[in-house]
Amino acid sequence: MRLESKAAIQIQKAVEEVFEGIVNPDKMTKYFISESSGRLQTGKDVIWKFPEFDEKFPITEIKIENNREISFVWDPETVVKITLEKLSDNSTLVKVNENGKEFNEDNLKWALENSAGWANFLACMKAYLEYGIQLRKGAFDFMRKT
């Protein structure tokens, strides 16, 4: 049995704008990461940095289907897949699925934490893309090692 982490949200923006909000580091650094070595593109690896962690995270095996799907690996045991669905009111349904870990106690904790993390990613993206609000700014300062 494999564990998976899932989250979904509807964003009141066109699918093209939501897609750009995910693949473009200038936008993603406004709501999710603090640094990126580049745009998400098929076959290209990038490095992400988060404001609350000292580590840098390599993002590999990137596959892009414009305005439909983004997938990548940042944990060698899992694949993240973000799908975009254009809805009849021109809004976008965004679904995140990360799966691949074997079922055990440690990985069950991972699945719960990552589901919350992806829900936070989606809420922060919605706030930024719809209203220009940066919910993540200062939200996780308590996690930084001092």
Rank of each mutant, 00 (worst) to 15 (best):
F50D: 06
F53Y: 15
E113W: 11
F72G: 07
L93Q: 13
A111W: 08
N67F: 15
N104V: 08
K81R: 14
Y131Q: 15
Q10D: 08
F19M: 00
N99Q: 13
K109P: 03
P76G: 08
T83I: 04
K101E: 00
I47K: 06
N99G: 15
N66L: 12
F140K: 05
E20Q: 05
I82Y: 03
E65G: 00
K13S: 04
C124A: 14
E17K: 15
E85R: 12
N97Y: 01
D45A: 14
K86F: 10
I70E: 07
T60L: 02
V80N: 11
T29Y: 05
L135T: 08
L84I: 04
I64Y: 02
K44S: 01
G132N: 08
K6V: 15
A111L: 01
Y131W: 04
T60G: 06
N97E: 13
A8K: 15
I11E: 03
E61Q: 14
L40P: 01
P51M: 10
K137S: 02
T146M: 12
W74P: 03
E102M: 11
T78R: 02
S5K: 03
N99L: 13
E16A: 13
F53C: 03
D106F: 11
N24W: 02
Y31A: 07
D141I: 11
D26S: 05
N90H: 13
K109E: 15
A139V: 07
S88H: 13
E20G: 02
F57H: 08
F53Q: 14
F19W: 10
F142T: 08
D26L: 00
N67C: 06
E35S: 10
L108Y: 09
K101R: 15
D75Y: 01
Q12I: 05
F72T: 00
F142V: 11
I70A: 00
E16S: 12
S71G: 02
S115Y: 13
K56D: 05
F53P: 04
K126L: 07
A8G: 02
M143K: 12
I9L: 15
I22E: 11
F72L: 03
I82H: 08
S91N: 09
D75Q: 00
G21D: 02
N114K: 15
K63T: 09
A7M: 00
R39N: 04
E77V: 04
P25L: 03
T146C: 05
K86S: 12
N66I: 08
A14F: 03
S115K: 12
K126C: 07
